[in-house]
Every structure is written in structure tokens, then in C-alpha cells.
Design a protein around this nucleic acid. Structure first.
Length: 952
RNA sequence: GCGGCAUUGGCGGAAUUGGUAGACGCGCCAGACUUAGGAUCUGGUUCCGAGAGGAGUGAAAGUUCGAGUCUUUUAUGCCGCACCA
């Protein structure tokens, strides 16, 4: 190479580097500029219409973000940026759900304070999020473990403690109102002692203490909520969970069941999510009835949805936990019953679910069927649940499969009540047919019979119509350290709230995060943990005298406490007077769009609706539903890669066979798949060098390559030597080596590519595997997009250029409004291709294009916008309007079908009348050919669409 | 068992109101440039068939001039709930 040539080459190289799409430089530069210019800061005062876009805030785990987390964040970011371009004042905040078990368990294992690890994890998360280029207003960040935040969690709890639910108005009210009412109208009230009064109030408070059968997890040393337990194991950690009765704080969520159900009709959530909540709330309409006990004065109450079947009741069943059991058991049966109860008590929920054998025991007592006056035996069995209905049922074996199984097992009578129902093999559970054996109901349809019976029992006073809900109160105590302390102290064993002005009650320092030796929760280890009522401050617990200094609550609040109202705090995060100021709340009102995973359907999303309705009742917030529209993003699964170790004859354990060869006879069933780190595999081709360096055991790995050879000394001379990996879709997890970190993707391709690619993968709501195989295509698109801005020319755009642009405007506008982000990326690619073909470098087109891509790829858009000569930020531009005039075609193409099969395309001028189109088609030279010797029956012309010739 | 969602090329997916199924991207094939290619560019790529043509959206039936789209039945997968009276 001559010196001249060398210089020329270097210059060319320099030019290429200079002009090349240098994403890391562009992204770093604009991220800094946005931060410096406070570009994403949002004001609560604005002339603009408001819009609130919220992501479910993450728990900052030690593992950092993986590529699945940002999926929803990117979608909401696109929407936020679009709304801002559309002239809205957009609230788009982010924060951290930073109390929780993992940090505490890590603390127990390592002695590191959970606060320290939590803060480090948050810092890592922020750094990762920052690199993706989200338009969050970080000024509004909240952290649930921050005293300035949990002050309001404690405040809300105090409000719940000091409120009751008024059944008449179906609203929460200050408990002072109830006390005032009793003072006026209830002569027994003033006679009660302070303690008795407190006990009575406890039955009405929204936040109350009660002995509860709880899910106790010995391994975690804490109580878990129902949704934190799955199949008898803790969701976090998989430890066994058992039933135990403990005194716990509870939230009276169940009283809100009707409103939680009704509210679903007024919010724009997916049907599946609403259905899940309806299911969870579990409304059933039925009747409550009294069954007298033979030989006694009292009766017990049952709940049934099949009032029509009373004539077929042949026995009664009580739940083992029912309070009636001890009252009705006869001396002869006591021993047997006690043995059964004992067995039930020791069976964990898990065993009960796993074992479906019919079990039960006869109590010795009989009840009287209120309609037939027949004597029916009362049994006890654990297939009846204490927590649902009244814990007692009337059994109708002919028409309920569980009752049927029970009756069969214990040889109890079965009376069919519906004409033609065959109950010799199974019960007839369907609610249809004509009634028989049912006295005055005979001949009626089931539906009418239910109605008639309801009227009958109401009129005769043996029962009443009743709606029942499955939803139970939430247990709100956790025997943990890393959570919000309750603003509660105990005077004579009764709880009292700390004055609001004394909040936050700070989480005390402890040196040991485990339960105390006496089995108290970890806060029992805190020396400074007593309340001085007179001086209104936390003092050493040695000073407790039960006169002025009292013990503080030792439990902390559960994970869902901090996440139940965080969306309100973002509206007004620095307000020191209120959770959210009225002015800020009146402006933002509610979350307009909430994005998150469907796994929160029955936990967080029920609790925060409850919490919000409670605050609404007391007038603290102006909307009774927190989240107007909600979209679930799908999960991102992992895509694992495998290498295949040869284990056949003469195996050294060091030879790996390319995936395409493993079914060959010589290797079939002689290879063992081994997970390989997906980060050293590109398009399913293994990076040999990286593999050998990955782990010591692969250092001397040898290969049979895709072409069947093993020679790899110099791949350049021998042609491409590729080792192809196999693959499988699995959960994204460290052990499968398929975790992809967004930082790595950003380092290799840039944040804009990551954002585009995550959207390009498929519809937002669907789960899909993270498959890096397609990412090159998206990155190539951005490179080509970048090249269009190499030179920028002035001049009038041509009609073709305008058509491309406006087609894109129309498409993207529709896509974003309909959350169809995956289809936007192809639209952008098509526009880029068209404009490239047209060699378009016109400013008028390119600057609009920069705005259009801005929500999706904000960094490249910002750079492009500035290249077009602007010195404002692209987020402050205006979203372009589609001008339909540019999209009008001068010719109309008609696909012409013969009996529904497309044969040719007819071109005719736009707006050719229907009759004219028909004439043109019939005159077309090909028509005769396709018609053959058949007759035309009918010609259908859909203007602007299609022509179909029906022949026969 | 109940409820919800899904099923389209080798792969991810598109088809927005019932109107040319397979857009766009990956991969693959061929070519150009190149010392080289995990770079770039051009063309091709649903299947069967040399071709004309035929088949085709998990399966079966139906409505319709016309169905991936609507209806019914059914299979498979995913998610949620579950002795809920």
C-alpha cells in the first residue's frame, strides 16, 4: 500500500467513524442535557390539560433490572412523551417499593443493615433506568421506606383505626360519630368501663385487632397474607406455612366488597383482570335460613344459593371450627368428635387441599328441616369452610357434588328434586329443570322455585335473602423488622394511636434482625421502643410504667401498606401538611393510565382500591377509583441456549456437537445438553473463544462444527466454522444462564435500540421470550434512519415524500392511542425505506420525522431535531397532524375474485362508479378465461375494496 | 371443576370495520463489494408442483358473494381462582 493510499484509507475511516451512528455518545450527551435542563420536571400548576401515567414501582432487588422489567416502563414512556407532544401536562413519576423481605433476610444472613443494601440497590436501579432514557420527573421520586413517605402510611392507618364503616351510607366515617351516637341513644354505653368501650369499638374500627386464624410461616417467623401463600408454601422462599390463631391487626376490607365490585364497571381495565377481581370478591346471592336444633331452643344459621332445594336436605354439616360444634355434640359422640377436630387442627391447609378423601363425623344431634319438619342429622366435616358463609351448610346430596360424595360415603339418603335427574351415579348440579318432591314448588322451573322459596322464607320468617362475599379482611401485621412501624401503643393492653403531629414514628435501630428469644417480633430487640404519653416521644422501654410510659406495637406493616397510596404521593411529594394537598389532588385527580404486571390483580390492585375508597369517604381525595385505565404488560421469558457434550463411546467429556448434527445416527442419544450463557451466543452461533474462557471446564473444549468438521485453527482460511446452539424457552433465571441485562444491550446497541426492540417483540400484553436474534434488524434501522440526517436540504417536499410522512403520522397516532406499539416499528421502517428510495433529505420532512420517532427513540430523535436546526427540546415540539389530502390515491386497485378466489387486479380511476367498475371487470380480457363455461350469477362490487364474481 | 386469554411460514409477529393472509424484522438462499466478514448493498424466500395450477391461519361444522376475523363444538397451551354452599 502506498503512503498516499494509506492516508486516503485513514481519512475514509475517520469519516466513517465521525459520521457513524455513535449511539453511546448521543445518548450520554442528551441524558446529561435533559437532566441539566430539568426537561422532564412537571408542575402542578398549568393551563394545559393534565394526564397521569404511572408504572407499578419496582422492588429494588439485589439482582438489578433484567430486560423484562423495562417492557412496561418503555410503553408508558412512549405514551407519556406522546401525550406531552399532544399538549398535555404529563405526570410520569417513578419510585421504589423499598420495604420487604429479601433485604431483611439478606440482613439476617450477612448482618448488613437492610437500609444500606436497599439504598445501594435503589442507586443501581436509578442508574439502570437513567440509561434507558425515561422521561421521569425524578424530583417526585418516592421510597416507601423513607420516613417522609411512611409518615403518610402511618397517618392513613391511624385514620382507619379511628374510623368505622357505616352500613347505612356504605361509607367510612370518623369513629367519633359512632361514639356520639351511642352516647345519645345507647344507655348501656356510659356504664361500660374504658376497656369495655374500647373492646366494643374494636368491632367497628376499619383497622382493628382480632384473633385470627393466620398463615404462620415458622421459617420466616411471620404471618403471611393469603396471596403470599401458594399451595401451603410461602410465595417468597417456598417455606411451609401452617394455621395458627394470633392477635393481629386487620383491615376491614370486606365491608367494601360491594363497592369494590361495583367500581369495576366504571373503570377501563382488561376484562380478564376485572374477572379475576370479581372472582376474588366472590359475590353470591342466596338466602340465610334458620335450622332449629332438635330438643333445644336455639337454632343455627346456614347460607345457601339454592333455596329451592330445602326439600332435599337430608343432613347438615358444620365446619370443624364452627362455634356450634361444642354446643351440639352429644356426650356419646364427644370422644369421636374431639378426635376428628384434633385431626383437622393438625392438618395444614396444604394437606387438606392435597387430600380429597371424604372425612367427617356425626355430632349426635339433629336439626329440624323448617319446611318438612323432618329430623336430619348434623355432621361435622372439613369440606365446609369456617371462613365462608356461616360455617354451616344444609346438604342437598342430589344437587351438589360435594354433598353427594359425602352422602355416598356415609350412606345418607339422597332425594332427587328435579324431574328426570339421574342421581344414581352423580349429583345433578345444573340449575335447570322442573321441581319434584318439593311441596309447593313442584312443577316450577328452578329459577322460579329459587325466587318463590326466597319469598316464602322471608314471609314466614325462617330466613332472609342475603348476599354473601368471599372477600375477607386483610391481615395487616407482620412479625418483621423492615417495614413501617405501627403508630400504636398499648395502655392496659388496649391500643391507642400516636398523635398525628408525632408522626412519623421512626423505625428503631436494632442490632439483631431476628425474633427475640421470647418469640417477640424483631422490634422487641429495640431498646428505645416505648411511648411517653406526656412528653410525646419515644423513650427507652426500661421506663415503661403503664402510667405515662407504654409499650409500642412490635409488629410492622406488610408489603402492600406502602404501595396502597403511593400514586397519590407523586401528585404532591413534598407536601408536609398532607399525604396529598387538595389543590394537587383536584388537578391530577387519579391515575389516567396504569401499567404493570397482572400478578398484582388480587393483592395490590384490591388493596389500593380499598385504601383509595377509604380516603375518598373521609374526603381526602376526590376520586373513588385510583386507576382509570389499566394495562398489563406480558412477561418476558428467557430464551436459553445449549451446547451438546458428546457422551457416547470414547467420550472425553470435552467434545461438543453442533445442534444441527445431534440427530445424526452417530450422535443420536449420545449427547447431553448443557446450558450456555446466552450472552456468548449470537444468533444461536457460539462464540468459541468466549466459551473457552467462560468456565475452566470448557477451557480445552473441542467441537464438531455445523459442517461436520472439527478443524478450527484458522476459520478465515477454512471458511466459516460455526457451532450452532440449541435453544428453549424457559423462565429467565440465573441458573439457566439466560438472563439478559439491559446494561449489556445498551452497551452493545444503545438505549434507543433496546426501547425499539422491546416494543418490536410483539403486543404489549402478551408474554414473549427475549430473543436477541432480531435485535440487529432494529439496530440497522436506526443506523439507516441516522444516515438520512447526514445532509439536510431546504426545499419543497414532493407529493410522494409527503405521502410517506403522512401515512406514518396516521399510523403512529393510531398505534399509540391504541397501545399497539409493536406495529409502529415496522411503520417507521417502511417510512424510512420509502424516504431513502426517494433520496429525501428535506428539512420539512425530516424534522417531522424526528418528532414522530421521539416517543420511541428519544435520543436519536433529539439529535435529529437539533440537526434540523432547532435549539429547543423535541419533547416541546408539537405532534404532527395527518393531512388526509396527501394520502389520496389517483387510481383505485380492485382485486377481482371469482367465487372468492383472487385472479387479477383491476386498476381504474378513483371514484369510478360501481356500475362502471362492474362493466370494466366484465370487459376485462382475463374475465372470460376465468369464467370458462360457467354462468355469472351475481357480481358484487364493494366500492374502494373488492370485486367478487359469483359463478356457477 | 369454574373463569379469562391464546393457537397464523424455519422464528418473532402483521392483517385496526368480515374484503388480495403472511406486512416488517430475524434466519436462510443467491449475487455485488471485500485480504476478510458476526460489516454494507441488491434480489429471492408459506407449502406442494418443472409449470399451469392447487392447498393453506390447531381440528370439525355453520353463517356469508366472501371468514385468520362472526357462531357452535372440540383439541392443546398459558394465567387466575377453587371442597365458596
Amino acid at each position: 500500500m502506498s503512503p498516499q493510499e494509506t492516508v486516503f484509507r485513514l481519512l475514509t475511516l475517520y469519516f466513517i467513524i465521525f459520521m457513524e451512528y455513535n449511539f453511546s455518545e448521543i445518548e450520554r450527551r442528551w441524558q446529561e442535557a435533559w437532566a441539566k435542563g430539568a426537561v422532564y420536571k412537571v408542575d402542578n400548576v398549568s393551563e394545559k390539560p393534565h394526564f397521569y401515567v404511572l408504572d407499578m414501582f419496582p422492588y429494588p432487588s439485589g439482582a438489578g433490572l433484567h430486560v423484562g422489567h423495562p417492557l412496561g416502563y418503555i410503553a408508558s414512556d412512549i405514551y407519556s412523551r406522546y401525550k406531552r407532544l399532544r399538549g398535555f401536562n404529563v405526570l410520569h413519576p417513578m419510585g421504589f417499593d423499598s420495604y420487604g423481605l429479601p433485604a431483611e433476610q439478606y440482613a439476617i444472613q450477612t448482618g448488613q443493615h437492610p437500609e444500606k443494601t436497599t439504598m445501594e440497590n435503589i442507586a443501581h436501579y436509578i442508574e439502570q433506568l437513567r440509561k434507558i432514557g425515561f422521561c421521569y420527573d425524578w424530583n417526585r421520586e418516592v421510597r416507601t421506606c423513607d420516613p417522609d413517605f411512611y409518615r403518610w402510611t402511618q397517618w392513613a392507618f391511624s385514620r382507619m383505626f379511628n374510623s368505622y364503616f357505616d352500613p347505612k351510607t356504605q361509607k367510612a366515617q370518623p369513629i367519633a360519630k359512632l361514639i356520639a351516637e351511642w352516647e345519645q341513644n345507647d344507655p348501656t354505653w356510659p356504664k361500660l368501663s374504658e376497656r369495655e368501650q374500647q373492646e366494643r369499638l374494636m368491632h367497628h374500627r376499619i383497622a382493628y385487632l382480632a384473633d385470627q386464624k393466620v398463615n404462620w410461616c415458622p421459617a420466616l417467623g411471620t404471618v403471611l397474607a393469603n396471596d403470599e401463600v401458594s399451595e401451603g408454601l410461602s410465595v417468597r422462599g417456598g417455606h411451609p406455612v401452617e394455621q395458627r390463631v394470633m392477635r393481629q391487626w386487620c383491615l376491614r376490607v370486606s365491608v367494601y366488597a360491594p363497592r369494590l365490585l361495583e367500581g369495576l364497571d366504571r373503570i377501563d381495565w382488561t376484562e380478564s383482570l376485572k374477572e379475576t377481581q370479581r372472582n376474588w370478591i366472590g359475590r353470591s346471592e342466596g338466602a340465610e335460613m334458620q335450622f332449629r336444633i332438635k330438643g333445644r331452643d336455639d337454632a343455627f344459621t346456614i347460607f345457601t344459593t339454592r333455596a329451592d332445594t330445602v326439600f332435599g336436605v337430608t343432613f347438615m354439616v358444620l365446619a370443624p371450627e364452627s362455634e356450634y360444634v361444642q354446643q351440639i355434640v352429644t356426650p356419646e359422640h364427644k370422644e369421636e368428635v374431639d378426635a376428628y377436630l384434633n385431626r383437622c387442627k393438625h392438618r395444614t391447609e396444604r394437606e387438606r387441599i392435597a387430600d380429597r378423601k371424604v372425612t367427617g363425623v356425626f355430632s349426635g344431634s339433629y336439626a329440624i328441616n323448617p319446611l318438612t319438619q323432618a329430623e336430619i342429622p348434623i355432621w361435622i366435616s372439613d369440606y365446609v369452610l369456617a371462613g365462608y358463609g356461616t360455617g354451616a351448610i344444609m346438604a342437598v346430596p342430589a344437587h351438589d357434588s360435594r354433598d353427594y360424595a359425602f352422602a355416598r360415603h356415609f350412606s345418607l339418603p339422597i332425594i332427587p328434586l328435579i324431574e328426570g335427574a339421574d342421581v344414581s351415579e352423580a349429583s345433578f348440579d345444573a340449575k335447570e329443570g322442573k321441581m319434584i318432591n318439593s311441596g309447593f314448588l313442584n312443577g316450577m322451573e328452578v329459577k322460579d322455585a329459587i325466587q318463590a322459596m326466597k319469598e316464602y322464607i322471608t314471609n314466614t320468617g325462617i330466613g332472609r335473602v342475603k348476599v354473601n362475599y368471599r372477600l375477607r379482611d386483610a391481615i395487616f401485621s407482620r412479625q418483621r423488622y423492615w417495614g413501617e412501624p405501627f403508630p400504636i401503643y398499648y395502655k392496659n393492653g388496649m391500643p391507642y394511636t400516636l398523635p398525628d403531629e408525632c408522626l412519623p414514628l421512626l423505625l428503631p435501630e436494632v442490632t439483631n434482625f431476628k425474633p427475640t428469644e421470647t418469640g417477640e417480633p424483631p422490634l422487641g430487640n429495640a431498646p428505645m421502643w416505648a411511648w411517653d404519653e406526656q412528653n410525646r416521644k419515644v423513650v427507652d422501654k426500661k421506663l415503661i410504667d403503664e402510667q405515662t410510659i407504654f409499650p409500642l406495637e412490635l409488629c410492622t406493616m406488610p408489603g402492600f401498606a406502602g404501595s396502597s397510596a403511593y400514586y397519590l404521593r407523586y401528585m404532591d411529594p413534598h407536601n408536609e401538611e398532607a399525604l396529598v394537598g387538595h389543590e394537587a389532588n383536584d388537578y391530577w385527580r387519579q391515575v389516567d393510565l396504569y401499567l404493570g404486571g397482572s400478578e398484582h390483580a388480587t393483592g395490590h390492585l384490591i388493596y389500593s382500591r380499598f385504601w383509595n375508597k377509604f380516603l375518598y369517604d373521609l374526603g381526602y381525595v376526590c376520586e373513588d377509583e385510583p386507576f382509570k385505565k389499566l394495562i398489563n404488560q406480558g412477561m418476558i421469558q428467557g430464551r436459553s441456549n445449549f451446547v451438546y457434550r458428546y457422551i457416547g463411546e470414547g467420550a472425553t467429556g470435552n467434545l461438543y456437537i453442533s445442534y444441527n448434527l445431534i440427530d445424526n445416527p452417530e450422535y443420536k442419544d449420545k449427547v447431553q445438553p448443557i446450558h450456555v450463557n446466552v450472552n456468548i451466543v449470537h444468533n444461536d452461533v457460539l462464540d468459541i473463544d468466549a466459551f473457552r474462557k467462560w468456565m475452566p471446564e470448557f477451557r480445552n473444549a473441542e467441537f464438531v462444527f455445523a459442517d461436520g468438521t472439527s478443524y478450527d485453527d484458522n476459520p478465515y482460511l477454512a471458511g466459516p466454522k460455526q457451532y450452532i446452539c440449541g435453544w428453549a424457552i424457559e423462565k429467565m433465571s440465573k441458573s439457566m444462564f439466560n438472563v439478559v441485562n439491559p446494561d449489556d444491550v445498551i452497551a452493545q446497541f444503545g438505549a434507543d435500540t433496546l426501547r425499539l426492540y422491546e416494543m418490536f417483540l410483539g403486543p404489549l400484553e402478551m408474554s414473549k421470550p427475549w430473543d436477541t436474534n432480531g435485535i440487529d434488524g432494529v439496530h440497522r434501522f436506526l443506523k439507516k434512519f441516522w444516515n438520512m440526517y447526514e445532509t439536510i436540504e431546504d426545499g419543497e417536499p414532493t407529493p410522494e415524500e409527503l405521502k410517506s410522512l403522512h401515512k406514518l403520522i396516521k399510523k403512529l397516532t393510531w398505534d399509540i392511542e391504541n397501545f399497539s406499539f409493536n406495529t409502529s416499528i415496522p411503520a417507521l421502517m417502511i417510512a424510512q425505506n420509502e424516504l431513502y428510495t426517494l433520496k429525501c433529505h428535506k428539512r420539512a420532512i425530516l424534522e417531522q420525522l424526528a418528532i414522530l420517532i421521539a416517543p420511541y427513540a428519544p435520543h436519536i430523535a433529539e439529535e435529529a431535531w437539533h440537526r434540523c436546526g432547532h435549539d429547543t427540546y423535541v419533547v416541546d415540539a408539537e405532534w404532527p397532524e395527518c393531512n388526509e389530502a396527501y394520502l389520496v390515491e389517483s387510481v383505485q386497485k380492485y382485486p377481482v375474485q371469482f367465487n372468492g378466489k383472487v385472479r387479477f387486479t383491476l386498476e381504474c380511476p378513483k371514484d369510478t362508479p360501481k356500475e362502471e367498475v362492474e362493466k370494466l371487470v366484465l370487459a376485462h380480457e382475463d374475465t372470460k378465461r376465468y369464467l370458462g363455461d360457467m354462468q355469472i350469477r351475481k357480481v358484487i362490487v364493494v366500492p374502494g375494496r373488492i370485486v367478487n364474481i359469483v359463478m356457477g
